[in-house]
Structure formats: C-alpha cells, structure tokens
Design a protein around this nucleic acid. Structure first.
Length: 635
RNA sequence: GUCCCGGUAGCUCAGUUGGAUAGAGCAGCCGCCUUCUAAGCGGCAGGUCGUGCGUUCGAAUCGCACCCGGGACGCCA
C-alpha cells in the first residue's frame, strides 16, 4: 500500500539508546512505550523482539494502560518461558518513575497482560507541560513538501454535493499536515476542470447567445452558466451510436436518413464545439475573452462556497487543467520517444502489467486528443518539478481508484517522479441518497452545495431559537452559521473516509450525541465557566492537581491529543480526530457534572479546575480548528 | 468475466493494526435542573461481528472458499 508514510515498526535496535536523550513525550502512552521497550531490551538483550505496544486499557478496572506483548514474546523467544514468566521478567526491569503506580507481579493479569495505572500527581505535571503553543504537537522539520489535491471544481457548474467530501476532507488533511509538517511544507491544489470539449461547448454556446443579444456576459451568474451548460450539452447529444449501428448493419437508407436528419443539428453543434476548442487552444482573442469570463464567474462563486465551508481554498491554490495544456504534447512525445508509451489500436498507451495493472493508461486518443490521465501526468510533473513536491495526496472519490493507480504507475514508469516520491489516493466514499444511489435531488439533478449549507443553517437556526434563552438576533444568526458548519463538516469527517454514507439533513443537524454541535456545546460550557470566573476575578492555578476520577479521565483525554493529531497525519483519516474530540467532550461532560469549578470546596481546588478548563478549551478549540470548525463563545 | 470497496445492536457508526466481558450515538425505558448552559449527566435493555472452514494461548481483526450489497474496468472527466 502507498499509505505508509509513518515509521514502520521494525525490530528494535539493540544499540540505540534514543529514549534517554530525546525529551519525554507528553503522552503517557508514548512514555510507557519507551519504558517498556527499555525493560524488554534489558530482560532479553539477545533477542530481536518487535517493539512492545502499550495501549489504553479497554476496561477501567484493569487500569489506564496495558501492554499485551508478553504472550507473543514468549512464543518468539522459544525458550520455554511461559507468557506470565516473560511478563514477570519485563516487570522486574520496568522503571516507570513517578509516572505510574509501581508495577509488580500483582499487575500481571490473565495470560500475561501487564496493567499500568497512572499516578494522578504525574498527570497534573503532564497537563502543565502541555500548556505550550504547540500543545505538544511536534513539527517534523525534515518533512518533504506535500501537495494536497482537493476540491476539483468544474467550469459552468455550481459546486454540488459531490464536491463536499473532496473539499472538506482535503482541507482538513491539509490543516493537519500544516500542523505536523509545518505550514510552508503543505501546498493545496484545486485541480479545476476548465479545459476540453465540454468547456469549449459551453463557450461556443455563450458566444452564440451573446451574439444574438440574449445574454449579458458582464452580468451573468454561475446559475445562468449552469443552465447554459445543460442546454448546450443537450443540444450536442447525438445518437452517434445508433447511426453507426445502422450503417454497420445495413438497416437501410430510410433508417439511416432518419438518423442522420435527427443527428444533423447535434452534429453541427459538436463540430462547432470542436472548432471552438481549437480556437481556444490557439489563443483566439474573442473565444479567450468569453472563456475567461466563464472561468472568473465560476471560480468566484465556487471559492465563495469554499469559504462558506471554511475551506482554505483560494485562487492561488487553484490550477486549471488549462495551465497544463501546452505541456501535454511534449510530454506525450517524450513518452513515445522513450518507448514508455506505445501505440495500441491507434491510441497511445502506457502498459502497466509489470505494475500489476492489467488495463493500460491511455495518454492519447486515436484522433490525437489528450485525456484526463494525460493532464494528471502533466500535473504530477509540474507538482514535483515546480512545487517541489515529494508527496502528493489526492483527495478524490474512490470510484477513481483505478484511474489513479494507472496514473501513478505511469508516472513512475515514465520517471516523472523520483522513486522516493509518495503518490497516494486518499479516496473517499460516495454520498448516497435514501435509495442507496448517489445523492440526487427529486428531479434527478445533483444537489447544490450552497443549498445544503442554506438548509443546514436554517435547521440550526430553528433548533437554536427553540432552545436558546436570550440571544440577540444577530448573534443567533452567527451561531446558527457556526453550528451548521460544525454539523456539516463533522458529519462528513466523522465516519471512515473510504466508506459511503447516506445523506440525511435531519441526522446531520442533530444537536444530541456524537455530533459537531455537541462539541461546540461542550466548548460553550467551558467558556461559560471561564467567563464567570473572569467576572468574579478568579485566577487559575499555575499547576493543576488531579484528585477526582473525573479530573483524571479529563487529564488523560487531554494528553492524548498530540498523538491523535500525529495519527491522523500518518493515516490521513480525519475520523480519528473526530472520535478523539468526542471522547474529550464526553470526559469534560463527566467532569462538568461531578466537579464543580466555581463552587469548588477550596480555593486551591477551584484554581486547579479552572486550569483544567483552560486546557480543555485550548485543546477543543485547536482540534475543532483542525477539522475546520471555528470555535464559538456561546450557544 | 476480472479487479477494488463494504457487510458489527431496530437505525447510523467506532473498534487504537491479533488481546481480557465487542463499544458509542440515535430510537426505547428509568432516574437527575432553587447550584458553573438539561443541546447535558447517570442507569436499563438491545449482538450467531454475512456464512463456513482454517491459522494460535487468543480472531470482528489474519488466510481460503462461498453468500449479499456497491463500485471500477481503452479512446468522458
């Protein structure tokens, strides 16, 4: 699989004493992993055992963390030691310092699980250490430049529901990578479908409409263009297959004549579109002017929709297929000259059998035209050479999986990318309607993204109005937009990326349970405490002291944040961050109920809890930010 | 036909890469607001992890076969 940017878990190096010199991680799990690794090395210095894994205990009665490797080690060692004896040997050499309660034979359970309970005192210090600008998320200074291909709008079309996932998932992955690789290392690329016959077809139609005085290009909207596109497409549709069939099977002059008459108009339109395409490619001034207007109107509207989704996608991130147009012929010539591409049935293809792909990648049609794949190859080349990319992540529908396998393999075969470059398709599933077919409106048209956002805002406004007390109208509107945005993005991000899901506005804008609004609500409740504390001039403590079980759960949840973000960066799976933030919000919910802050029993306890609240606010705000969900003060 | 996804509670989904009694949310039932936002919290109930073999101390997770659903497969993008 391509998706394996992270460190592979190989055998431990016996000489590597890294643990002693690098700073101790905030994440207790990571610290434990190091300590366990050291203990394993000490216990079995001769054996080349895999790294131990220390995971969060599934059941609180076993403690906070557990190591389950003793069973596997016993087998790998082959020394006749049973798993409990192996666990015993590890435990005897385990030094957990003051992080956890001492681990003894009593902590070895079942076949050989080693259970660890974190000390509350150590947790407080860890949370304190997390109170730095990075929140403990380390930036990989050696990271390669990474391109995230996202959004992918097309000229003369409103953004529709099919663009939601590419935009939201792509934007989120970019945000996470910006955090873990450094903002300068991440380059977003909106691959705009602004070229080819369909675009020429609209352009031709626009020109004729303008000539007839039926439209004013200066005042035209994307909705107008959308209509013109559909009209032009319908006018160009010809029963070409039917005619070919009739000719091939000699169905007689009458049938042929009928079909030709039926096809005359569409054929003329298609010819016109092809002429327009040639004129466009040759830089014809008037065609170019109309095309540019088409481009500007579309992009202006689409980028506005992106902004409504809080996706950081601008004109600067957008590269039209047109920008690669002049590179296509040289590229294909090079592929042909080097023998990478060969002629097959009149078309030029790159054979990929040696890469395990039966279907070849077609780079030039029999009629000399270039294809989707050709443009993608040119884009890869550009991204590597001009943008300096060593890694390109394509946030595109899973149905294009074969296409990308072909393009990636062809790019490697042609040497367009260094062998070390990583090309990965961060595929996502389709948004389906209630009928389990790709989501369409009742009339069979694609559902406009702008409409979905409008409906979500309206639903959120209704819910807020029904529940909220005394919010001024203006603030209610702002909050409704924020809640709707949280609902939309969280819904799209919270299930596994590669899976399809059935669209349901009602479920999307639900306020209860595992939803975006619930996370905002948790934040609103923290903010409420902090606001009241500020009004009463109550200060938080410089360090927090963990005493109550709910405080401990909250602290443990907070400390998992940096590892979670790194995990998302490694796997490119945003739903892990969603699940984490939900668990954090749940932990805060328990804390909120069980641990009064402003009315705490002592001033010290109150100050300490205020600090926990501050940290919860920081992590929630930061995590929501990575999901592209702006924080709100109240709701 | 070949290849790629998926199948876990009534519904929508997780499951930390093979660990202990499979977890959440919604829907249902029972409790909790004179106390920091009840959009919440606590509890009950709900399961043949598609089916069958296999691998091993241990399988929702790995392998094989089959069933069901979706998708992609040469000159569209």
């Amino acid at each position: 699989m391509e998706r394996s940017w992270g460190l592979p878990s190989g055998p431990m190096s016996l000489t590597n004493a890294d643990a002693a010199h690098t700073p101790e991680p905030l994440d207790p799990g990571a610290v434990l992993r190091r300590r366990f690794a050291a203990a394993v090395r000490a216990a079995f210095p001769e054996a080349n055992l895999p790294e131990p894994s220390v995971t969060i205990a599934q059941n609180a009665k076993f403690g906070d963390y557990q190591c389950s490797n003793a069973m596997a080690y016993a087998k790998a060692l082959g020394t006749g030691l049973n798993p409990r004896q192996v666990a015993q040997a590890i435990v005897e050499r385990l030094d957990l310092g003051d992080l956890a309660e001492p681990v003894t034979a009593a902590n070895i359970a079942g076949p050989g699980f080693i259970n660890v309970t974190i000390r509350p005192a150590a947790l407080g210090a860890k949370v304190d250490a997390m109170d730095v600008p990075s929140l403990g998320i380390e930036v990989d200074a050696d990271a390669p430049v990474t391109v995230v291909d996202l959004c992918g709008v097309n000229l003369a079309k409103q953004m529709h529901i099919g663009h939601l996932r590419s935009t939201v998932i792509g934007d989120t992955l970019a945000r996470v990578l910006e955090r873990t690789l450094g903002a300068a290392k991440v380059k977003r690329q909106n691959h705009v479908g602004d070229w080819g016959l369909p675009i020429a077809m609209v352009t031709a139609k626009l020109m004729s409409l303008e000539k007839a005085g039926k439209i004013d290009l200066g005042a035209i909207t994307l909705d107008d263009l959308d209509r013109v596109y559909k009209q032009a497409k319908a006018e160009c549709e010809a029963d070409v297959d039917g005619l070919a069939f009739a000719l091939a099977w000699g169905m007689g002059p009458k049938v042929e004549a009928e079909l030709e008459a039926f096809n005359a108009e569409p054929l003329e339109r298609s010819a016109e579109a092809r002429r327009t395409l040639v004129a466009l490619q040759n830089g014809d001034g008037d065609v170019r002017r109309v095309w540019k207007r088409l481009y500007d109107v579309t992009m202006s509207a689409c980028l506005q929709t992106c902004a409504r989704l809080n996706a950081n996608i601008t004109e600067a991130h957008s590269a039209g297929e047109s920008s690669y147009e002049e590179r296509l012929a040289p590229l294909v010539a090079k592929l042909k000259a080097s023998g990478v591409a060969v002629v097959d049935d009149g078309a030029l293809v790159v054979r990929l059998e040696d890469a395990g792909i039966a279907e070849p990648c077609i780079v030039q049609k029999r009629d000399g035209g270039f294809l989707y794949a050709t443009t993608d190859l040119a884009a890869i080349s550009h991204r590597v050479s001009a943008l300096g990319a060593s890694r390109i992540i394509y946030c595109v529908d899973a149905r294009q999986s074969l296409h990308f396998r072909q393009v990636f393999a062809a790019a490697r075969k042609a040497g367009l990318v260094p062998a070390s470059a990583v090309l990965e398709h961060a595929a996502f599933g389709t948004i389906l309607g209630e009928d389990n077919r790709p989501f369409k409106s009742r009339s069979g048209e694609s559902v406009r993204l702008g409409d979905v956002i409008d409906e979500a805002v309206e639903a959120a406004r209704g819910q807020l109005a029904a529940r909220s007390r005394d919010l001024p109208e203006a603030e209610l509107e702002t909050i409704a937009r924020g809640v709707a945005l949280a609902a939309i993005r969280y819904t799209d991000l919270s299930s596994e990326r590669t899976k399809d899901y059935v669209f349901s506005l009602q479920r999307m804008v639900a306020f209860e349970g595992d939803t975006g609004p619930y996370l905002l609500y948790a934040l609103a409740r923290v903010n409420s405490i902090l606001r009241n504390a500020a009004e009463q001039r109550l200060a938080s403590a410089p360090t927090c002291t963990i005493e109550h079980a709910a405080e401990k759960s909250l602290a443990l949840a907070l400390l998992r944040y940096p590892a979670c973000v790194q995990d998302v960066a490694r796997t490119l799976e945003p739903h892990r961050l969603c699940a984490y933030l939900y668990e954090l919000a749940v932990a805060f919910g328990g804390f909120f109920e069980a641990c009064p802050v402003l009315r705490a029993e002592t001033a010290e306890r109150r100050a300490s809890r205020l600090r926990l609240c501050t940290m919860t606010k920081r992590v929630l705000t930061d995590g929501l930010g990575l999901l592209g969900i702006p924080a709100i003060e109240r709701m």
